[in-house]
């Protein structure tokens, strides 16, 4: 039953703002840390392949197995499965910080795959041209791989941002709080559809803004 009682925004408003802030905080930290780690792992996945500039079968196989193990696990299960690790690293298994840790683990391996796939699209000939003028692998990674794949990478990260927003809502289940948790507790839990719809709209607007910004940035990088 949906109750149509008037919502007390005077009381819920500040709470909503606090949770919006928490969501942004969780998403930003995850995007930053997992974005960086995912980039490193993605580049390693790509460069350690056979014929890659850092060809290393063992490293490549280990990374591939890791990514293939973590990626298919539904995030809610990953939260439970990672509890011992979360405990060891963070000291607690609930709360915003614990949620962020789990999100970082989940997002890193997803990002690694996205980065790898975008790098595959680079013309191997350009890498050979860089090798032919004596560029080292490190120089090729920083001055060639990333710039050549920048457009698709930006779009990939935009996609990742939305996936992380999704993760952050689920993270509410281990006390991560944030908008998702707020909508469940104050909207769904109290039969207040108004709260649910307000939170939904906020998330939609947030995602749209980021998608527009990502598209614009990618277009600039691709010069189209």
């Amino acid at each position: 039953m949906i109750r149509t009682a008037t919502t007390d925004w005077g009381q819920l408003g500040p709470l909503l703002l606090e949770n919006l802030w928490l969501t942004l905080y969780m998403v930003a930290v995850t995007l930053l840390v997992a974005g960086f780690l995912g980039l490193v792992f993605g580049i390693l996945l790509y460069t350690t392949r056979r014929g890659g500039i850092l060809q290393n079968t063992a490293v490549n196989a280990i990374l591939n197995v890791l990514v293939n193990i973590v990626r298919p696990i539904p995030f809610i299960i990953l939260i439970a499965a990672l509890q011992p690790v979360t405990m060891a690293v963070i000291g607690v298994t609930i709360g915003t910080t614990a949620a962020i840790f789990t999100m970082i683990v989940g997002a890193t391996f997803g990002i690694a795959r996205i980065v790898e796939q975008n790098l595959v699209s680079i013309d191997p000939g350009t890498i050979e041209a860089a090798r032919a003028v004596g560029a080292s692998p490190w120089r090729i990674i920083t001055t060639l791989l990333v710039p050549e794949a920048l457009g698709p990478l930006i779009l990939g990260y935009t996609f990742v941002f939305i996936a992380i927003v999704d993760m952050s809502a689920i993270a509410g289940s281990i006390g991560g709080r944030g908008l998702g948790d707020f909508a469940i507790v104050y909207g769904y839990g109290r039969f207040n559809w108004e709260v649910t719809i307000v939170v939904t709209i906020i998330i939609i607007v947030m995602v749209q803004l980021v998608q527009f910004f990502g598209n614009w940035l990618a277009r600039k990088a691709l010069r189209r």
């Binding site: 013309d123 000939g125 350009t126 050979e128 041209a129 032919a132 003028v133 004596g134 050549e148």
Partner: peptide
Amino acid sequence: LRLGIGMIFQQFNLFRS
């Protein structure tokens, strides 16, 4: 030593970025 050996390619292999 490769700085002393230039190379050009069939598909040019220029850096698009």
